[in-house]
Design a protein around this nucleic acid. Structure first.
Lengths: 351, 351
DNA sequence: CGCTGCATTGAACGTGCTCAAACGCGGTGG
DNA sequence: CCACCGCGTTTGAGCACGTTCAATGCAGCG
């Protein structure tokens, strides 16, 4: 059982976190200010520390800084909590070598995921003799426990269930996710509540990194479509890996450049194409992306509402167009799943 | 007067190039195969070589490679011509150290610009004693004459006139441009001829780099709005500079990430907003981008057609909406120039 | 003076949205 | 077992917005 030290001066918040963590079978100890936190850490030897950045006397950065210079604590997983609206906090946390960063206010599940992911990473690193610390401590700089290249095989996978939210618009871009399996949509919400799905991501994709690169808040929302397995990286670690792994870097740059071109295309499409063309285009793009072939033909399994949000139309309008396509023998619908029958005609429709 | 060696085995193409170059007061000498080209270069000592990649016997890469190992020719400006549909050619040209790369078929003006830009760069480099070659030659690798950081002050500026095209969709992404002054639109064309302006760029912006990063063809078109001064870089050089200049690199990455977010926003806007909102949004974005304040208030100077292409609407629809706005005292129109009068109300309109 | 290019206004049409109702399907409980 | 409900999908009818085509206005210029 892992031991976690929670450092938080607000009593309510502290109780909430303790309760959440205990519920997940962690052993929890508490401190309410920085001085107490450092003493506690040295006596209790926790496996992980969750610490608010804003504390009386010694603040969270001070605690982190002090511990990082103490033998035995240089690579101890450390999660910082800080207010969402302060951009500088995030960079400071990066520099001091926090493992993870949670923007307040956060939900219980976010805390648990951050804890789980940090512990898993630390255990993984401990297995690598070159990276684990023995004997007298050597000054390693802020990248003391960040790994140097990207190997998904070496990471623990988090499971998100259908319809779960991975991140929300406006949250500080604290993490980046790599999709191992499943499908995840990223979308934006219009004032009147309509959603527009800007992308559907599958295995091998990263999500949330554009915001991390800008060092800003997420500009869109991410929600699971099919149950998904993802690897969670803190933005800090992601950026570190990028600088160390040129292959990944090229891949990310290429992907960004590609996305810009793709979205321009989509803008043209949405601005001037008729509904029929937009639907045909959407169907073809989706099957191109996820070659979900079953016995050769292309199948799309997606709720009408989601599909409409990709096309950028009302669900009723979409249904009508699909109904037309069915009459024209272009597609076939079974249990709500759409089979594309005549690819040539669909392609010809959009030119 | 600069001496240019043209190497091309097709008689028609050769004549065309020679005529174009002579018209611009260059002294031109010719060769029709690789062997002849190398001999000619050694005796004539040209200031620049334009060479087709596809030649009988020794091909263009062979000529380039041979000359690059000959004392006195290691940094001679060398422009390679190659067919548009071969991606590998481009990379090969980069490796061998061509200064510039022109995709065939090309227009006369493109050749002249490439020549002008390569000669200017070479003269600039010759002024820097650290980079110019003296005494015995040292093997420098393919980046022999590419500069190591980006300093616009140090470059020659090309002038493009109003409405001139800088690059076109489908062309190989051979160059990247940096805007010194003026405004340039990048746009896509719909099947039925309607244009959608995806961006309006001003001083300090790079254009064409997304395609260069993908190593692909341009996906959009670029055309001058107001007479513009630009610095032309070959894609080869741009990519080199990126690897050497971390500041520029960060800037490019940030810009890409930002563009992705911006375009997502625009997609949502175009999909679900009413015409009124789209127009209000467009006006505000344009004045935000180019703070063309005259005596304090914000002014937009753009043809109705261009403005409509940014909004993604018919010019008539735009005019009507502007007319409504004028009646509501939100804007004022003088000589076709739009003055924004009530920013708060416009902002409130889009929320 | 007419010509051209661009902006504006007018009238009619058609696409796609909205609100409603009906349908099908699975789960739940009496 | 069937009735009931909830949820997602489909169909129906009317309306409104934005496009289209056409006419008109307006300035610059040979």
């Amino acid at each position: 059982m892992n031991k976690i030290l929670v450092v938080e001066n607000d009593e309510n918040d502290r109780h909430r976190m303790v309760a959440t963590l205990q519920l997940s079978n962690y052993m929890v100890v508490c401190a309410s200010d920085g001085r107490e936190a450092v003493q506690m850490a040295r006596t209790v030897h926790p496996d992980l520390i969750v610490c608010n950045s804003c504390l009386p006397d010694i603040d969270g950065y001070g605690v982190l800084h002090t511990l990082r210079q103490t033998p035995g604590f240089t690579s101890l997983p450390f999660i910082l909590l800080a207010s969402i609206d302060n951009k500088e906090e995030f960079r400071k946390a990066m520099r001091e070598g926090a493992d993870d960063f949670l923007a307040m206010p956060f939900e219980g599940i976010e805390l648990l995921r951050a804890v789980e992911s940090s512990l898993a990473r630390n255990q993984r690193l401990a297995r690598h003799p070159t990276l684990s610390k023995t004997g007298p401590e050597i000054e390693m700089g802020p990248d003391h426990l960040l790994s140097r290249t990207w190997d998904p095989a070496d990471r623990s996978v988090l499971i998100f269930r259908k319809k779960e939210i991975i991140y929300r618009e406006g949250q500080r871009a604290s993490h980046v996710w790599y999709i191992v399996r499943g499908k995840i949509k990223t979308y934006r919400v219009h004032d009147d509540g309509k959603e527009l799905i800007t992308n559907v991501h599958g295995p091998g994709d990263f999500i949330g990194y554009a915001a991390a690169l800008e060092g800003n808040n997420y500009k869109d929302n991410a929600r699971v479509l099919d149950e998904a397995g993802v690897i969670q990286l803190s933005s800090v670690e992601f950026l570190h890996i990028l600088t160390e792994d040129p292959g990944l870097f090229r891949c990310v740059i290429g992907s960004l450049a590609h996305q810009v071109a793709e979205k321009d295309e989509d803008l043209l499409n949405k601005a001037y194409n008729s509904l029929r063309k937009r639907v045909a285009n959407g169907l073809l793009l989706l099957t191109d992306k996820f070659r979900t072939t079953e016995a050769g033909d292309r199948i799309i399994q997606l709720s009408r509402e989601n599909l409409a949000s990709i096309i950028g139309a009302a669900p009723e309008s979409l249904t009508r167009t699909l109904s037309d396509f069915r009459k024209e023998k272009l597609i076939e619908i079974e249990d709500g799943r759409i089979h594309l029958l005549n690819l040539e005609k669909l392609r010809k429709m959009i030119n």
